[in-house]
Design a protein around this nucleic acid. Structure first.
Lengths: 152, 152
DNA sequence: CACTTGTTTCACTACTTTGTGAAATCTCTG
DNA sequence: CAGAGATTTCACAAAGTAGTGAAACAAGTG
């Protein structure tokens, strides 16, 4: 099981995910409990408290993880957000927006798809804009599938 | 324009793309000519020939770039492949497959979505499988759009 | 078949990233 | 409001990556 964590973490790392953040993500995923404390994460991943701290902050910013202060206790519980992957996709989409706007700027100074450069850049721009535009519908469809499966 | 190259390259770098490869990609994209030689790339990007060599090899493996030996000349021309982004997506999909199969293995030993762990892992698995399954249709749709626009 | 030009390989350097340990900070408990 | 457990911050060490220069290698040209 620990192997699963490392394996998936490695995959995500190749994708630009910080290594420890990826490990924490999958450690939470494979936890029998609903959430884990920073200390528990440190033990399981055999990492320092500091490394965990940085990782959960990162994951929090991306919306993968929520922190839940446990009332009457000093330790906070970190939990995967519901619909983790759904939320993650939403974040990823911002990347597309950045590409699109960068391309738009260039097209402004190059003058549209007349030149070779304009043609290439606008194809890229259009491609990302196209994919990006389809994402919301895709996520909706996914949501719908889920609800049917869970019988609600 | 050089700024555009650096800016987009940086974006892609955040996404796990090797930096020089990203630079080369966008240098080719913003070239007035159909392709560039290794030497030209080195000049424009102000990098060593060695760095260019590694980058174009990488891009070649990913299918972003083709190398065209120029007949009667010692220098090879590197060109962006047509439908660059379309092809790139195809490559990216393999990443999904790896996740899916890793998840499947775990589910085998955890026994489906009965436990908390099983539930989380199978949600992830299903999500990636869902998105992955929609990609081909999405790309088809994109192709269709293109053909209409270019009037063929 | 030597010469010249263009590309690749390889050992090494510089840099960035990752993670640690120790100290500081925070917050609940008594 | 002092004490204890938990988390965060910070300076630094270790590791991994990217890029360079020089040498090897290929391929045209005279």
């Amino acid at each position: 099981m620990r192997g699963f964590v490392e394996r998936l973490a490695l995959l995500f790392t190749d994708w630009g995910f910080p290594r420890m953040a990826a490990r924490v993500l999958f450690a939470l995923m494979t936890a029998e409990a609903p959430g884990l404390t920073a200390t528990e994460l440190a033990e399981r991943l055999d990492a320092s408290a500091a490394a965990i701290s940085g990782a959960v902050r990162y994951l929090g910013q991306l919306g993968f993880v929520v922190r839940e202060p446990v009332p009457g206790s000093r330790r906070d519980l970190y939990r995967l957000r519901d619909h983790t992957w759904y939320a993650g996709t939403t974040t990823a989409v911002q990347f597309y927006d950045l590409i699109i706007s960068a391309a738009d700027e260039v097209l402004g100074s190059v003058g549209g798809p007349q030149s070779l450069v304009g043609e290439r850049v606008s194809e890229m721009r259009d491609f990302f804009a196209f994919v990006r535009s389809r994402v919301p519908a895709l996520l909706d469809e996914w949501q719908a599938t889920r609800q049917i499966q869970s019988g609600r």
